[in-house]
Simulated scan of single mutants.
Amino acid sequence: MKKKVKYKMGKLGKHLFMSKYSSINALLPDTKAATKSNIYKMLRKYDSLYIKLDEGTGGRGIYKITDVDGGFLLRSGTTSKMHTTFEALYNSLAKFLKNDKYVVQQGIDLLEHNGRSFDIRVMVQKNRSGQLETTGIIGRLAKPKKIVTNFHSGGTPLPVSTLLESHLNKTDRAVFIKELESLGRRASIVLGESYRSKKAFGVDIAIDSNMKPWILEINTGPDMSIFNALKDKTMYRRILKYSKF
């Protein structure tokens, strides 16, 4: 008989687990099951929402809803559609919500670089002693007019320092990047309580216009190849080395 995986969780399960920890719960965007009631209530609370596949990866199955004058703007990929009422919006969403499990998440007003949104991926891996260490950090710049930053959805991998140049001076950038690396490790330690056998975590962090970091998601099977896209291969070599422990 095949052994049951005890801790298999999608985005919602991970969110609920991590929200019990006071060290990071204030940095988790509000996330709920994508029911009609939850979407309605959250649209009254936030300017924008993301609808995401509970177990989707690589930027698949992501929709953005923005509350605008005259109704609700629904975006997916590079396409947009305006709905004048919530019922019309939900009818459009219901087509795919009935087939798969989705979550609805508070929208974060992402920082931009050259008019394009970006977020951060922090790689955290177990060292030779089994302790979690931050081994890499990289920025992901969204393709023009796209709502997702993922590498496999056309996002451009760039050094975090480059993306923060217009937001912080050199000294403050270095301090802030260290804080992001530390946050990635702290968040991984928390989720690692539930995924004890995992050796690597990819922590996706959004930064809002007030420079507050938000933990969007933690991937328990992170893609390492994005780091190979950087000209400087130092981080990529370190990540490969740790992957062998």
Rank of each mutant, 00 (worst) to 15 (best):
K2H: 13
K2N: 13
K3G: 13
V5Y: 09
K6T: 12
K11F: 12
L16E: 15
S19Q: 11
N25L: 01
L28C: 03
A33C: 07
T35G: 02
L43A: 05
Y46A: 07
S48C: 09
I51Y: 09
I51F: 10
D54A: 12
G70L: 11
F72S: 06
F72V: 06
S76F: 15
G77A: 11
T78N: 15
S92Y: 09
L93I: 06
A94L: 02
L97A: 02
Q106C: 03
G107M: 02
I108L: 07
N114K: 14
S117R: 14
F118C: 05
I120N: 08
I120A: 05
V122S: 03
K126Q: 01
E133P: 13
A142S: 11
S153F: 03
S153I: 04
P157E: 08
L158N: 04
L163M: 01
L163S: 01
S166K: 14
L168Y: 09
N169L: 12
F176I: 06
L180D: 02
E181Q: 05
A187F: 04
W214Y: 00
E217Q: 05
P222K: 03
D223A: 12
M224I: 04
S225K: 10
I226F: 00
F227C: 08
Y236G: 09
I239M: 14
K241F: 11
K244P: 09
